[in-house]
């Protein structure tokens, strides 16, 4: 049976949601005005100037450019206004997030795997506290997916081979749809889940109920030894490799003279494509771990290196 009759519009429940809705309303009104005018004129002309209707058609074919110029500029101005409006809100949505509460999202055919930084993981669901921005770091194991929460008016593609961040905030408690919006194969339409927005206290309680095996960073530390990273990157190593303590978030001088901030993406690239950016003063000795670590493991490694950074 049809469970719910959805009305024309549910308001968005994120800070951007309100702006997007307003923009949508603005676009609708602008279009309604234009369409209204157009349909009115079409109807009017069709009735008035139908063949056989005796009506004054005296037509001295006045210069048409006057009209042309005016409607061209009118539409151009109207378009410009809409463009500026849309762009402003867009910047709002994708502004670089400061470091808040983070969750990691790994997309693969055909599920969403979410990991909270405490090590709690869930599948096809994302629990989050209300009114608190959380930053998602997303990666894909295989093809392109797209993380889409209609209620928040937010979406971002998850492209394999790179990290993508998205900052989301939900302002109302409830259960919302999570969709995969980029076509990704057989069960694309099954790659859905729900976003559960809870009171902050409830969320904390939920987190503690989940049994994290160990924190992601700790797991990362284990991997770090298991994969042999520590063989080079530890204090006693014979190989001249940079110390990773405190690297995260700092500027790193590179051998080509430039400097980059060691963020998630940089660490990730250092592991997968070590040659793309060589730290100044080191030989490009590090092997690529491309294909040897999964996205899940990568996340843990990155988190581990990040945790090293936190320790003074």
């Amino acid at each position: 049976m049809w469970r719910q009759w959805i009305p024309f519009w549910h308001p968005g429940v994120s800070p951007e949601g309100g702006d997007v809705d307003l923009l949508f309303a603005g676009l609708l009104i602008a279009s309604a005005l234009v369409l209204g005018l157009l349909f009115f004129l079409l109807a009017l002309f069709c009735v008035r100037y139908r063949a056989g209707n005796e009506i004054d058609r005296e037509n001295d074919e006045a210069k048409s450019w006057y009209w042309e110029v005016s409607w061209t500029t009118a539409s151009l101005l109207c378009f410009l206004a809409l463009f500026v409006w849309g762009a402003t809100v867009y910047f709002e949505i994708y502004r670089r997030p400061p470091d808040e509460l983070t969750a990691f999202v790994v997309a693969k055919q055909w599920m969403w795997k979410v990991q909270h930084s405490g090590g709690q993981s869930e599948i096809n669901a994302l629990h989050m506290p209300v009114d608190r921005p959380i930053r998602l770091v997303m990666a894909s194991q295989d093809v392109i997916h797209s993380f889409f929460i209609p209620a928040l008016r937010l979406k971002h593609d998850v492209v394999p081979g790179r990290y993508q961040d998205l900052e989301i905030t939900a302002q109302r408690i409830g259960h919302y749809h999570l969709f995969c919006a980029e076509y990704c194969g057989t069960a694309h339409s099954g790659m859905t889940g729900e976003v559960v927005v809870m009171e902050q206290a409830d969320f904390a309680a939920w987190l503690s109920q989940q049994t994290p095996t160990s924190s992601l960073a700790d797991e990362g530390g284990a991997l770090f030894r298991q994969l042999g990273c520590s063989g080079c990157h530890s204090a006693g190593s014979k190989i001249h490799a940079p110390q990773l303590e405190g690297v995260y978030g700092r500027p790193v001088p590179l051998s080509d003279g430039s400097t980059v901030i060691a963020d998630d993406k940089y660490i990730r690239d250092s592991i997968l494509l070590p040659r793309s950016q060589i730290a100044a003063g080191y030989e490009p000795l590090m092997p690529s771990f491309e294909g040897k670590v999964t996205e899940d493991q990568l996340l843990r490694l990155v988190l581990y290196i990040k945790s090293l950074g936190r320790q003074p």
Partner: peptide, 8 residues
């Protein structure tokens, strides 16, 4: 071709 620049 292996080594540092294999991808490129």
């Amino acid at each position: 071709f292996t080594g540092s620049l294999a991808n490129g």
